[in-house]
Design a protein around this nucleic acid. Structure first.
Lengths: 297, 297
DNA sequence: TCGCATGATGCCGATTGGGTATCAATATTA
DNA sequence: TAATATTGATACCCAATCGGCATCATGCGA
């Protein structure tokens, strides 16, 4: 026999009443059942918790020690269950959010702030990851929500567009293009490019390549960096040019110039994505929050 | 269905393994039983704790919240049970000890100190009480051990003598008797006596009276006080004389003189007493400790 | 002495817990 | 592509546990 919460609840009532019939009434059971339950608990512990006669019930020293712990166990159990329910209905718990460089440079900070103001008991856990990594982690249940590049069409996933950005060319301020107001994409054909690492930035490259192809060239990538900050650093050193999006370019360090690509209408979309079968707890509230926002421009 | 510790243990194992067959093996039950138990727990909570396919088991946000609490509940339960056992076998817990003025002025402090050195996890709870009060509280289970005056012969009680004291007369240093080396009890016949309150000191009076009666008088009590300190205070103010015991008199304040009663052979005994049916936990260890001491002189 | 109060025990039926067998769905392998 | 393996869920059945009613044993008070 393993002692259960039932036994512990029966014990607390008996310890408080010190009278088996009254304790049984309080518990809504018959006195013999209570008598046997306490005996079973004592047998399991191999400890006398009460000294009883047919006239009186007294609690032992061990019983008093057990009573302190028993009250804590019950309180902790009730609290744990209540917190699980609260987490289930989304009012508390962790929300693991993945984000790309484009998301964190754009709409995401304000989204997180707005949501956090509405759900103070939810703990946001932002985790950087490129799009493909986020998708994998969503599948594995390691992320609740992702902010990724481009529309995602995948079974079991749903999404909502949260931002849409024009492409921009970034050059060093010493570059001949720096004094221009804008460029045609074809003018980059002979330039050295700086880009992200071939594994992590494959997804972004798959958006950039068709744009260049239409102008008759493939970007000649001479340098790779790990993230946008690294890319921009290499560009400002004159190692080449790059193409990023308007939000990433909106707060440039000195030494860099951003140029519109006048003949490029394509935009880079950032979407919030989630697994439909995992939309429970705080994630459900976040998606509700997103749906209530005006559409992204 | 009320969730039980069994469910909580099953849940923790499942949350740690994230695989029902392996968790069931670890718990020593069949996988279908585990499946059903987790479902029952989820139904009770009305919370999804896992997202399961036939390929994978993932824990939900609510599941993770519940896991934190579940681990605490199990640890607290195990600890509480262990402490109850420890208290039962006497290694820890409270020991409620009653004492008289005679006990605390005599052997008791050293006894408590000696026991405490041997049983550091036991908390001693000394509580002053006159003999009759202590007996009542032992019967009610409010005390574990008493240090009372005189031999106690009462069904269900056992005892051991811990000290034995001669009677002494105490007078103010301005009293004519103060320059004497000793007295006969009959010399007190005409004196005003200071004694304890008639209710609380009845038990002591029942020892004193036969001694005076044998010398042909009953003490003429003119003043009452609540305890020995009060009695001695009144005596030092010249309000009368008193008869106490040697230990209480051993550290007198200025203004008081102690005189042996040369023809009184009776001694006042202080005994440790306990209920035989209540000799469990730390009380048992204390009594063992007393039995190991040399007999009281 | 009798009546009452109180915890323990006996007997029985209902409910719960667990095992084996099987199913449904998916992934892997040949 | 078909066969096989894996995995959680469900069906059926039996054993164990829990709780109720009736009764017993004991002690106290009128």
């Amino acid at each position: 026999m393993r002692s259960d919460l039932r036994h512990i609840r029966y014990f607390v009532a008996t310890a408080e009443e010190l009278h088996f019939r009254r304790a049984a009434e309080r518990l809504g059971i018959a006195q013999p059942a209570l008598s046997r339950a306490i005996q079973a608990l004592e047998a399991d512990l191999d400890v006398a918790l009460f000294v009883r006669t047919n006239r009186s019930v007294q609690i032992t020293t061990a019983g008093r020690v057990f009573l302190d712990g028993a009250r804590e166990i019950i309180a902790l159990t009730d609290r744990t269950m209540e917190e699980a329910r609260t987490a289930h209905d989304g009012r508390m718990g962790e929300l693991r959010i993945g984000y790309t460089d484009f998301a964190i440079a754009g709409a995401l900070p304000n989204l997180l702030k707005g949501f956090q103001e509405r759900h103070a008991r939810v703990t946001l856990k932002p985790q950087h990851g490129v799009t493909l990594t986020q998708i994998k982690r969503l599948e594995e249940g390691q992320l609740d929500l992702g902010f990724v590049t481009g529309p995602i069409t995948r079974d079991g996933f749903d999404q909502r567009v949260v931002q849409s950005e024009a492409f921009r060319c970034v050059v060093a301020d010493s570059h001949p293009f720096a004094r221009r107001d804008g460029l045609q994409i074809a003018e980059l054909a002979k330039e050295d490019f700086v880009h992200g690492s071939s594994t992590d930035w494959q997804h972004f490259y798959d958006y950039l390549l068709p744009i260049c192809r239409r102008a008759g060239f493939a970007p000649r990538i001479r340098q790779e960096a790990f993230n946008t900050a690294g890319i921009l650093g290499l560009v400002s050193c004159g190692m080449g040019v790059t193409v990023l999006t308007e939000r990433v370019c909106s707060a440039l360090a000195p030494g860099l110039v951003t140029l519109p690509l006048l003949d490029v209408d394509e935009r880079l979309v950032t979407s919030a994505v989630w697994r439909v079968d995992h939309l429970i707890g705080p994630a459900r509230h976040f998606v509700d929050y997103l749906q209530d926002l005006p559409p992204a421009r």
